[in-house]
Write a protein that binds this DNA or RNA. Structure first.
Lengths: 128, 128
DNA sequence: CAAACCGTATCACTCATATAATACACTTAG
DNA sequence: CTAAGTGTATTATATGAGTGATACGGTTTG
């Protein structure tokens, strides 16, 4: 079952969005199997040290996107086939990359420079 | 003088951070000359349709970073030599890229895939 | 000099985020 | 069956972000 072990909250934005993104990344990565159960709202809130309502907000948005299913009394579970996985993956990758490209172009960075920087930082991150 | 023409506000975060980032990107790109005057808080607030206090918050942070100077009664102006430019540029590029790399690795993206994606989206953005 | 503009500061208000404390109906495990 | 756990809902409170209005003193310009 999903553990939320690798989710470290920061001050970059609303907590419910960080939870939402974490689950989406797991789905995109294939780390979370189709039909897999999610830990309950209360368990996650205790793990992260946040309010149950905050977790509920993230779970609700996941359900509205059709990525999880919830039934009163029972645990929620993931419903994400290969098509959904691919869709989420493309969505997340596109969001991040486009924002970075826009910022880089505004700073006068060339395509070659951008590729070199990405390659360099990628390897640097590997070494850590 | 800096016009704030290319700054389009979105819902990605606080307005004062978007203004802060816009000016920083201008400094990093060399679009803004050293000693150049900034439009007043009131002018910018009217241009963007936001409150003067919001602009003031961004200007204040710029001053705290030593990138602009303000004197009561007179217009603020940029004080950013080549060293400061380089520092800001590295700071912005590193922030964006590292965040994207972290997200990509968590989604199981390979380095080659990341480079191909960046190259592809860069060209796609050129065409727009 | 005087009017216009500027940086700065303050107060009150709205809204989103997050917390806190419950409550209720349903499912599941002992 | 019973108790524990679960999804869901409600109300109240606190905080930060952003707005709106206003004020004061200093600088610039005609």
């Amino acid at each position: 079952m999903l553990t939320f072990d690798r989710l470290v909250l920061d001050e970059s934005g609303p907590i419910y969005l960080q939870i939402l993104r974490y689950v989406k990344q797991g789905i995109a990565a294939g780390t979370i199997a189709n039909g897999e159960e999610l830990p309950s709202r209360r368990v996650v809130s205790a793990l992260l040290g946040v309010n149950p309502n905050t977790v509920q907000k993230a779970y609700r948005m996941l359900e509205e996107e059709g990525l999880i299913q919830s039934h009163t009394g029972a645990k929620s579970c993931v419903v994400a086939d290969e098509a959904a996985r691919s869709r989420v993956r493309t969505q997340l990758l596109g969001q991040d990359a486009r924002a970075m490209i826009s910022a880089m172009k505004q700073m006068g960075v060339t395509r070659e420079e951008a590729l070199a920087l990405l390659d360099s930082l990628w390897k640097e991150d590997d070494a850590t």
